[in-house]
């Protein structure tokens, strides 16, 4: 009976394996199987029989007490090391680089179109248009990959450390202090994006579109940059104390 075996394995999952525990599991499984077949013979359906067996199993604590076995408890497990202010500082430093790399990467991808359009205006620079487009796109993608990988590496190194109340407070203070720069960044970014329409209206030429795209790229950079830094502070400010960093 696989279901009974799975149920029993679940009950014993925190119990260190030993010959006595293996014997106890085998004997309990045998008794449960006998009980199951007896219930079937009494006319119960398979699921009713399973329900009857499981409800009559009882607690394995008494079995473990009889065997003198003590399951591994969370208190017995080694407590995780606490995250220090330096660790948090290192993480925020990595977040800063991540914010710049990600913002630059996305901005470059947008600007690549502007470059293509700019060089496309002159038939002599057609090749330059394609080359500049490809270079900007690959530079943008590389920047995004580099930024993401770097931050992930730093975060992975801290994954076994627990967040403490003092780190929570430090992060909350940083988060609060960052709200003003964040607001300025967001307003600047949004303004840049809205104003990008102006050169497109004033300059009828393709140059208008080029300027529009460049302004959007700058606006997007600002928005991503401040938001990513903000999220770095928020992640530690909102993590529950005792919880592992993730």
């Amino acid at each position: 009976m696989e279901s009974l075996q799975v149920y029993l394995d679940g009950l014993f999952k925190d119990v260190p394996p030993s010959a006595a525990v293996r014997q106890a599991k085998a004997d309990l499984l045998a008794a449960m199987e006998d009980h199951y077949h007896d219930a079937l013979a009494r006319g119960l359906s398979a699921s009713e029989a399973l329900g009857e067996v499981i409800s009559s199993v009882g607690s394995i604590d008494e079995v473990l007490a009889a065997l003198d076995v003590h399951p591994a408890t969370s208190e017995d497990a080694e407590a995780p090391e606490a995250l220090t202010a330096e660790d948090a500082q290192g993480y925020w430093q990595a977040t800063l680089r991540y914010a710049a790399g990600l913002g630059l990467g996305v901005a470059l991808c947008i600007a690549s179109v502007a470059l293509a359009v700019f060089f496309d205006r002159n038939p002599d620079t057609d090749a330059l248009s394609a080359i500049s487009f490809l270079l900007a796109v690959s530079g943008g993608v590389a920047s995004i990959i580099f930024a993401t990988t770097h931050r992930r590496r730093v975060a992975r190194g801290l994954r076994h450390f627990a967040v403490t109340p003092s780190i929570n407070r430090l992060a909350a203070r940083r988060l609060e202090a960052y709200q003003r720069p964040r607001m300025i960044g967001l307003v600047a970014g949004i303004t840049c994006c809205i104003c990008s329409i102006i050169p497109a209206i004033i300059i009828a030429d393709n140059l208008g579109a080029v300027l529009l795209l460049l302004m959007v790229a700058i606006g997007v950079f600002y928005m991503i940059y401040v938001q990513a830094i903000n999220n770095g502070y928020k992640r530690l400010a909102e993590a529950r104390p005792g919880q592992l960093f993730h």
Partner: peptide, 24 residues
């Protein structure tokens, strides 16, 4: 299981031993 069944039958279903209690 035979011991457990003998107890249940001997008490006219008035007392049933849980499997873990029996085993311990």
């Amino acid at each position: 299981f035979e011991i457990s069944k003998a107890i249940t039958a001997g008490t006219n279903d008035a007392y049933t031993l849980r499997e873990t209690t029996l085993y311990s």
